[in-house]
Design a protein around this nucleic acid. Structure first.
Lengths: 247, 247
DNA sequence: AAGTGGTCTAGACCACGGA
DNA sequence: CCGTGGTCTAGACCACTTA
């Protein structure tokens, strides 16, 4: 084994072993070999099956743990992180002033599909003539007087028949992606101020020209292939804020 | 040395060695023993001087590197990260649509001090009767039509004579903190929509009631002691956005 | 060629959690 | 009590940078 690796590595794969293992484990999680919430074998056993030292195995596991895909606890073991699989369409960074999560009610949902327009092509790295599934939602947390109009687009090629998969329409992205054998990586988000146009005003029950917080994000897999393009317009109640952790 | 550590550790200090070293190195950087931009000794030498193995030393160095305080490059060595020491009062997350940094001009600056009010006491964990230095700035990037009204408060106790230290008033927090022997840790920030009151409207050259993006952040040292309480009101031009990296 | 950090190994002991 | 991950050691070799 030692010799095989020493011979093959320079030719076929020069990346660090722990990163190669990282990717293999990523596949395990994405394709369900390791199911959400399940306990995974211990370090020593994993190291043996991959033919590496415990230290190297550990580095791969820690990398996954840092990215939130595995949860490790001393004395307990290593578990596949439970992704929020419920109905909440994660707008995690919208919080109450006391940093509690908001509780969303889906007021309306509308699913269509069609050829990607210029913006969608650019955002999702699609070529001309490819199509996308579009999901438009109106969400509300009436207790906190906060309403969101959300436009999500997914490349049809990677999300086959998403249009008809109604159960998937209300899932947060993490769960949706995994349902289609994909793993969403951390993304960046952009915020700007936007004044409501007529249509937005109607859907969000505000007057035209009311100030909204506009969120734009593009989520990719770990291989940097984009899988979601989302634009959300938020009407924030007096008690609602957008909070996040600076680097 | 070995014996001393084995004897003393359980009594005086049970935290992992690499974290103890992390803190010592943090002090080196904060107090200027390791100057900004300087190269630090190599891992092996450091490990010897601290009386630990290279692996442990490495873990401490990497932790500092992850937090952006050290910069390590294979073949080059380890350097103390250069902090932005210029005049720009870092509003790093405000960007143009193309993600370029904005270039700020200080339109006005006003420095006062006085007893901390309730909000300031809460934000900075101060007790009744302690005082703060307040710096109010109006900043503008005229090219991108973006204006910011920024209120910063610092505990007088940790920033002695900051009121008279005019050079410090225009520094970004990282540089300011280091000038006073402190090291700022990553913080969290809150965003909300705010409608300009009369005073804000005048300072930002907008009409009263104009929508502003309000940023609130509290920055602490690595020991969680708060050192800055900042509230900023931003009038964003059409080309300006607030961008950040999701976890 | 020399020196640096990056990767990898093969052990050891410790602290925690659960049976 | 045992099994887990967390810490720590003392090496080895590799890849990169600079002189």
């Amino acid at each position: 084994m030692e010799i095989i690796r020493k011979l093959e590595k320079p030719v076929f794969e020069t990346r660090p072993l722990y990163l190669q293992i990282f990717d293999r484990l990523l596949d395990y999680i994405a394709d369900g070999t390791w199911k959400s919430g399940a306990m995974v074998p211990n370090e020593i056993e994993l190291a043996r099956t991959f033919g590496v030292s415990v230290g190297t195995m550990r580095k791969a596991l820690q990398a996954l743990s840092e990215r939130g895909l595995l949860t490790r606890r001393q004395g307990r073991g290593t578990y596949v992180s439970e992704m929020p699989s419920g109905e909440s369409p994660s707008l995690d960074n919208l919080r109450t002033r006391r940093m509690d999560a908001l509780t969303w009610e889906i007021k309306s949902i509308q699913v269509t599909s069609g050829l990607a327009d210029d913006d969608e092509q650019r955002a999702l790295s699609l070529t001309d003539g490819t199509s996308v599934v579009r999901i438009r939602k109106v969400l509300a947390d009436t207790a906190n007087d906060t309403h969101v109009l959300e436009y999500c687009r997914y490349p049809s090629q990677r999300f086959e028949n998403l249009e008809k998969d109604t159960a998937a329409h209300t899932m947060p992205l993490g769960a949706l992606a995994r349902r289609y054998g994909l793993l969403a990586a951390p993304a960046s988000e952009q915020l700007e101020l936007h004044l409501a146009d007529g249509k937005q005003a109607k859907l969000l029950e505000v007057t035209q020209g009311a100030p909204l917080l506009q969120l734009t994000r593009i989520v990719t897999c770990f291989d940097h292939v984009p899988i979601e393009f989302r634009v959300a317009f938020c009407r924030l109640g007096a008690n609602a804020i957008y909070a996040y952790q600076l680097r």
